[in-house]
Design a protein around this nucleic acid. Structure first.
Lengths: 127, 127
DNA sequence: GTATGTGCAAATGGTTTGCAGTGGG
DNA sequence: CCCACTGCAAACCATTTGCACATAC
């Protein structure tokens, strides 16, 4: 566990934000200006493999990293990209799993919406 | 509606396969060898925008295209990447939506498993 | 001491785009 | 006839990787 890895880990787990590698890189550089971008990617990958954090693949956008290790759904704003964690109701997927020949090894559930902030500023017709 | 676009559309909608742009490109070139890769991407994008097909973003892999237009969950083999369509039980997401301040504009549900074919060949310890 | 990690810079790979020419309506 | 579309090739951009040096244990 190097200084670099620890710093990256602390940044991801310090806040509930779901940051991109680039955001993490920028934040980390404030404290360790010599840090290389490649090191950030390598360590994020290792932390994910080790199960310490989760990677969240985003549609047409850089991946984000989640400090919450247990699987759970995400609520994503289609306008600004903000991500919130949701709580998965017990056994919600049971009816789906029931029809399958084998066990589910994992799942990924994303709900899309327009967040209150973006809805407030929606007046313009801009895409 | 050009010959190129029609060909691409037919390839996506002809089978329930969830093909990548590259696979579609290869298949299309069998019938139209002059077709450019860029044209495939452009037309897939246009077809998606027009709501005629759907784009399926895959984790750490090229996107796949789905002829089924209605939102539905996908069952994805973690080993070989094969994708199957599932049927969303009526109102399964209702309990999740209930807790939100606004309406859901869409969702994406991926279930991961090891498909029967891959499970059969699982003997090796290879990753 | 040595396996592992780092910084750097170049490579990758899926996808997008600028441009000049083509063709559908 | 004109605008949208094509083929081509170069550009993009998030991410990965090879390498020589540094560091954790």
């Amino acid at each position: 566990m190097t200084r670099q890895r620890e710093l990256i880990y602390r940044i991801v787990t310090a806040a509930p934000e779901h940051r991109t590698a680039e955001e993490i890189y920028d934040l980390a550089r404030e404290q360790m200006p010599s840090l290389a971008r490649g090191t950030v990617y390598r360590n994020l990958g290792l932390l994910v493999q080790a199960g310490q954090i989760r990677k969240l693949e985003m549609a047409d956008a850089p991946a984000r990293y989640d400090r919450e290790r247990r699987p759970h759904p995400h609520l994503i704003c289609q306008r600004c990209g903000r991500v919130e964690d949701l709580v998965m109701p017990e056994a919600l997927l049971a009816p789906l799993e029931a029809g399958l020949p084998g066990p589910i090894t994992g799942y990924e559930l994303k709900l899309y919406h327009i967040c209150p902030a973006c809805r407030g500023a929606r007046k313009d017709g801009a895409r």
